[in-house]
Nucleic acid binder design. Structure first.
Lengths: 260, 260
DNA sequence: AAAATTATTTCAAAATCATGACATGTGTAT
DNA sequence: ATACACATGTCATGATTTTGAAATAATTTT
């Protein structure tokens, strides 16, 4: 979204620089079941000088990828037949190809990263075409630059997938939450809300942001849905629901997690 | 256009937070030749606290957009004089503004996407107002996010979202104010007034400006409302309300925050 | 002193939130 | 297939807080 004008012109120039320097066009496999999305992606990637192939579901994706060996894969997670997560894992197991994940929700992305499927990058909807193209290029460059250190760095940044906040311990890998030492059972939605808040403790998050990041860009339900989910979380983690100490309301704004 | 009423209720609630947190209202250019549509869009966007400008054909759209530099453009594709596609392409060439395409049919969208133009998002008629507003907000947020992260790489760049002014510490993320080390509890309105003043300490701000920037353009209430809010703030932050040391009156003009 | 401006108090309306109840959908075990 | 538990979203209601306006008091300016 940054620099619309600049990049329209840019893209023409870079076309030559980036692509003509490699004799042959890089091939990108676009995997999405929404034809519209595929169309945008394909159109814009071709404009940038890439060759594209398409797949509309997970099964196809795996088959085509193995057959055509693309230089990069753009992969939506919401897919028919075999979901994107599985596709990603399987492809990573057999092919050494950068995979760029498309997703409507931040939380979905987290899940993927948490599961260590080996995705190389991700981008959440709505994304600008510009942004996408930039990521594609970046990832292709990365491969080129480090054809030697194939698997070196990834394991290096093994972050603690546990967030600790006072009485609260959130294990992102296990999808498990402990309060005061007790494992409590949250539903997926509840967990995601809590996790999102926990990533930035103290920071007040509006309901709208939560809806977008947790429920997803495509969700247009009642904003008060957030309140209800919060209440359900509180029922499980707060000693006294009527005086929350952990998940706190900022009246007129939204919710936040008390830090420490 | 189902759901016009639904969002009328909606808008009452979140009115403030998202918009007034940027102390000026975002401007949205609505481009459509059907007056009815424009009216509905404008009405609802204003309800949400956006400023709106209108254009009824493609020619006008381009002219106005270049002149007024809106923060976002809602663009119908079916337009007299210059069609939406062209408008989009041209605008993208000169302005860096998110464009949200309105279209009657899915197929139309398909066609559009097959074409160039870096539209940022699209929405097909009929759409719910809630959906539209959500998309508008999402796209505006996107812009904001990308202007903050200079290179878009990591969110790790910790902008201190904290304003310090002598005894006063305002944490913008937490919507929290400390006075002499003590966290005090301000209402949203109070917080916003204080924040606005704090962004330009020493600078005297008239009540009119405060009303406009904090209450919003559409607010036509009593100007003395500002006084009352100021008093409420003082009660919470001043040691001696009758001799304010922090939030000070400039008689005949307005108020300002003492500098250091 | 009169006029103008600001401070303070009070009150009712409006906004916001928590909660319970209900509806729907989904998966699972019988 | 049927029944059941569970997850999740929606809605209505009541409680609480916030807010604007009006009325009055206090202060400053002219």
């Amino acid at each position: 979204m940054e620099g619309a004008n600049e990049s329209i012109e840019n893209s023409k120039e870079q076309e030559n620089v980036e692509n003509s320097s490699n004799e042959f066009k890089k091939t990108i496999l676009v995997v999405d079941d929404e034809k519209r999305i595929v169309d945008i992606l394909v159109y814009n990637l071709q404009k940038e000088g890439y060759q594209t192939i398409e797949a509309n579901d997970g099964e196809e994706a795996i088959r085509i990828a193995n057959e055509k060996k693309p230089d990069l894969i753009l992969l939506d997670i919401m897919l028919p037949k075999i979901d994107g997560l599985t596709v990603c894992k399987r492809l990573k197991a057999t092919l050494n190809v950068p995979i760029l994940i498309l997703s409507a929700k931040d939380e979905e992305i987290d899940k993927i990263l948490g599961l260590e499927l080996g995705a190389d990058d991700y981008i959440t909807k709505p994304f600008s075409v510009r942004e996408l193209v930039a990521r594609v290029k970046a990832n292709l460059r990365k491969v080129e630059a480090s054809t030697l250190n194939v698997e070196g760095e990834q394991d290096a940044n093994k972050e603690t997938n546990v967030i600790e906040l006072g009485d609260l311990v959130i294990n992102l890998d296990k999808f498990e939450v402990k309060v005061r030492g007790q494992v409590i059972d949250l539903t997926l939605r509840e967990f995601e809300v809590l996790r999102y808040l926990a990533k930035q403790p103290g920071q007040v998050v509006t309901r709208e942001i939560l809806l977008e990041k947790v429920w997803g860009y495509e969700y247009y339900g009642d904003i008060r849905t957030v309140d209800v989910t919060v209440r359900r979380i509180r029922e499980k983690i707060e000693k006294d629901t009527s005086a929350p100490k952990i998940l706190i309301t900022k009246r007129g704004v939204g919710y936040y997690l008390a830090n420490v």
